[in-house]
Design a protein around this nucleic acid. Structure first.
Length: 205
DNA sequence: CAGTGGATGCTCT
DNA sequence: GAGCATCCACTGT
């Protein structure tokens, strides 16, 4: 029988958490815990995609693929990437704003063996360090497109304290690639790629 | 390390 | 028919 006091359980993220600007939600997700059927970890890397951003899937308007982005916040938008991988977003902003945060990397904390079996790799650092990798590790597919993030099989827990967060340009895009809308947990070994240190002063010529 | 190219399927023009 | 919000294997330092 457990007699010592347990730490207070992290609170589930409420749907209203997502009913705000992606540029506030995105850094706010760093440190939160994402689970699918009990498998997952701590979010260490995300990217914001606002509907006015040419790189956003919703930029050209509603289509069959991005329909979930135009729905209510707090739901998962899942799409197929390069014909092979799945990627998962959290829909943000008031309904109809069609903006979302791409979840890019987790620090694995729960269900490590399930992740290793699904991923076919042993190295903990390669389980969830990338948007395609984490979807494979957590078993996220199109079946979860449109699913609410505050109900099974998802669990999304708020962080206890605000961590140190770094920002930089987003990865793998060609449009608006200079926008610093990628956020990460400073120093995490589970980032999909390191954040470049602050640019040195430009030499004078 | 850095750089390159292939796999693969779906969306939109 | 082009273009991907990727990953992995392979090459050459």
């Amino acid at each position: 029988m457990q007699t010592t006091a347990l730490p207070r359980a992290p609170s589930p993220l409420q749907r209203r958490f997502f009913d705000r600007s992606v540029h506030r939600v995105a850094p706010g997700l760093i440190g939160a815990t994402l689970l699918v059927d009990g498998v997952g970890g701590v979010i260490v890397e995300v990217e914001a995609y606002h509907h006015t951003d040419p790189a956003a899937h919703s930029y050209v308007g509603r289509t069959a693929r991005n329909a979930v982005m135009f729905g209510p916040p707090g739901h998962a938008y899942v799409y197929r990437s390069y014909g092979i991988h799945w990627c998962v977003n959290a829909v943000c902003e008031p309904e109809g704003e069609a903006s979302a945060v791409l979840i890019r990397a987790l620090a694995p904390t729960a269900g490590l063996e399930a992740m290793r079996a699904r991923r076919g790799v042993e190295d903990e650092r390669l389980l969830c360090s990338g948007p395609g990798r984490l979807c494979q590790a957590l078993g996220i597919t199109r079946a979860l497109d449109g699913a609410p993030l505050d109900a099974a099989p998802f669990v999304l827990l708020a962080r206890a304290k605000k961590p140190a967060i770094v920002a930089g340009p987003r990865i793998g895009i060609t449009k608006a690639a200079e926008k610093p809308w990628r956020y990460g947990l400073k120093g995490s070994p589970y980032l999909s790629r390191p954040f470049r240190p602050a640019a040195p002063a430009r030499p004078v010529r």
